[in-house]
């Protein structure tokens, strides 16, 4: 059997496949597609089968949009005949090499905003990869605390750099294994294992459309990285940021957001709070509702970059479909 992968920018990648899921078959052929759990639960390897029949192994149905019966998770998609699969990202996001696994030391830990910790690591130099922090803004790394087999994915909030620094914003979940370790045991100097960079939630820099970033909580981290990147490269695309929170105290400090404007003067922002105090003068409601309002007056197609829970992404997807302007949703589930 043969698999044909069609990337968003129209490139076709073909490879033979025997008794395996499409993701494993692609890796055997040297194509490393964005994926995380390999167990049908994270939704990272979502794609769409345009042609051919297949079986889906055990997976979490919540990770597939109900609106598209052809959507699959490639790690659970077993072909029964030749398949043509549409990938929701460009050829450039398909890697040809295995994901690096490296060591990194904690250099700083501090509260970011309520319920969130800012964690900074510095990569340990090694002969194979050196000491540079190389990634595409929007990508994530998998972190494993020392002496554990806990593996959690967190998006990078900073920019690629030659000092080897990796910055994350980590939301503390009570009782969560990683959160507990971070809150109770982690200290500066601890050596963690980091696997990455991973993920296809990256800017389409060839697009001239206005960009709208939608995120809430730690979903801001990859968006911060992308906005900082746009600032560094003096990107001239129109750009709007919608940050959603349940309460005002979950909003990042104004200085954090204002510093973005210093390098990205065209940046506009909407802060959406679901349960604000009485004197709140920002948007009252969810991030998707703020997006609806933001797009209400625009007829131009927009690239929406959204990072958040599956439910939020579904609402945004529906919203863009109803709008009917040919908008694109580039999304990361958390």
């Amino acid at each position: 059997m043969e698999i044909t992968l069609v990337t968003r920018d129209g490139e076709r990648l073909r490879f033979p496949i025997a008794q395996s899921d499409v993701l494993a078959g692609a890796e055997a052929a040297g194509y490393f597609l964005p994926a995380m759990c390999h167990e049908g639960t994270c939704g990272q390897c979502q794609a769409r089968v345009a042609k051919g029949s297949y079986e889906m192994g055990k997976h979490d149905p919540a990770m597939l949009p109900k609106s598209d019966p052809a959507a699959v998770l490639l790690c659970r998609c077993i072909p029964k005949e030749d398949l043509t699969v549409e990938l929701p990202y460009n050829r450039a996001q398909v890697l040809h090499q295995k994901v690096p696994v490296r060591k990194a030391a904690i250099t700083a830990m501090q509260p970011a905003w309520e319920g969130a910790v800012s964690l900074t690591l510095r990569l340990e130099p090694d002969a194979e990869t050196g000491s540079a922090a190389e990634f595409a803004p929007g990508q994530y790394m998998e972190l494993t605390p020392p002496g554990t087999d806990i593996r959690r994915a967190y998006s990078l909030a900073n920019l690629p750099n030659w000092e080897g620094l990796l910055e994350f914003i980590i939301r503390i979940h009570k009782g969560g294994a990683f959160s507990t370790w971070l809150a109770e045991q982690a200290k500066v100097g601890d050596i963690m294992t980091v696997r990455g960079p991973l993920g296809a939630f990256v800017l389409d820099e060839m697009s001239t459309r206005p960009r709208c970033f939608v995120g809430g909580g730690c979903g801001l981290a990859p968006i911060l990285s992308m906005l900082r990147h746009m600032g560094e490269f003096q990107d001239s695309n129109a750009v709007h940021l919608i940050f959603g929170a349940n309460r005002e105290c979950e909003i990042p400090p104004p200085a954090e957001l204002e510093s973005l404007r210093a390098t990205l003067p065209q940046l506009n922002m909407s802060l959406a709070v679901v349960q604000p105090d009485e004197e709140w003068d920002g948007f009252h409601g969810t991030a998707p509702a703020a997006l609806r309002q933001h797009l209400a007056d625009s007829t131009e197609p927009v690239d929406v970059y959204a990072c958040g829970p599956p439910r939020m992404l579904e609402v945004i997807e529906d919203l863009l479909r109803q709008r009917g302007r040919g908008d694109r949703l580039i999304a990361e589930r958390i």
Binding site: T129, A132, G164
Partner: peptide, 14 residues
């Protein structure tokens, strides 16, 4: 200068 900085951070030929 930043190319030199990058060269120092990257592994080089072993």
């Amino acid at each position: 200068a930043q190319v030199v900085q990058a060269a120092n951070a990257l592994p080089g030929f072993a």
